[in-house]
Amino acid sequence: MNALEYFNARLNATISPMDYLRSMKMNPEKYFLLDVRNGPKNLRNIIIKDANVIPEQELKNHLDEIPKDKEIIVYCWDVWCNTAAKVAKFLLENGYNVKELTGGITAWKEMNFPVSKSTYNDNVTNNCGC
């Protein structure tokens, strides 16, 4: 793969927080935002506003909650975490249209974009799995 192919693939597989926010405002019905973070619940209590929470550890049991007719935007902790990439790969293998939100919730919060409290109740272990 040459540099041009790499950057084309990267742009096709990811979306920046700014691009997602702009696109979501223009066409909110197109997207399904998915928080897939594992780890301690007290650290996952803040989510991107209107995100759907299904931790990676529970994903296989909740596939029926993820629409196949929308573009799925997955995110995890930050650029160092690969949980969202693992989930994106799994969902793509199962027929979903998926992109990863670049920088995860860390980049989102750094830009002071809207967040909310999570009300999702789960049994996720404290192991992040990144």
Score class of each variant (00 low, 15 high):
N2T: 08
A3T: 13
A3L: 14
L4F: 09
Y6K: 14
Y6E: 08
F7N: 10
F7A: 03
N8I: 04
A9M: 05
R10Q: 07
N12G: 04
N12L: 09
N12P: 00
A13E: 05
T14E: 03
I15E: 00
P17H: 12
P17F: 08
M18N: 07
M18A: 06
M18C: 00
Y20D: 00
Y20M: 03
L21Q: 07
L21N: 03
S23N: 14
M24E: 10
M24R: 15
M24K: 15
M24I: 10
K25S: 08
M26S: 15
M26N: 15
N27D: 15
N27G: 07
E29Y: 00
Y31K: 07
F32G: 06
L33P: 02
D35N: 12
V36E: 04
V36T: 13
N42H: 15
N42D: 15
L43E: 09
R44G: 06
N45Y: 12
I46E: 11
I47G: 01
I48P: 00
A51W: 06
N52H: 15
V53M: 08
L59N: 11
K60L: 11
N61D: 14
N61Y: 11
D64H: 14
D64P: 00
D64E: 12
E65I: 01
E71A: 08
I72Q: 04
Y75M: 02
C76Y: 01
V79A: 15
V79Q: 04
N82A: 02
T83V: 12
A85P: 00
A85V: 03
A85Q: 09
V87E: 06
A88S: 12
A88M: 01
K89Y: 09
K89R: 05
K89E: 14
K89A: 12
L91Y: 02
L91H: 07
L92I: 10
N94V: 08
G95F: 10
Y96H: 13
Y96W: 09
Y96A: 11
V98G: 11
E100R: 14
E100K: 13
E100C: 07
G104M: 12
G104P: 07
G104V: 07
I105A: 10
M111G: 06
F113N: 04
F113S: 04
P114A: 12
V115S: 14
K117S: 15
S118M: 11
S118I: 11
T119G: 13
Y120R: 13
N121F: 09
D122K: 04
V124K: 05
N127Q: 08
N127Y: 02
C128N: 01
G129P: 00
G129R: 02
G129S: 03
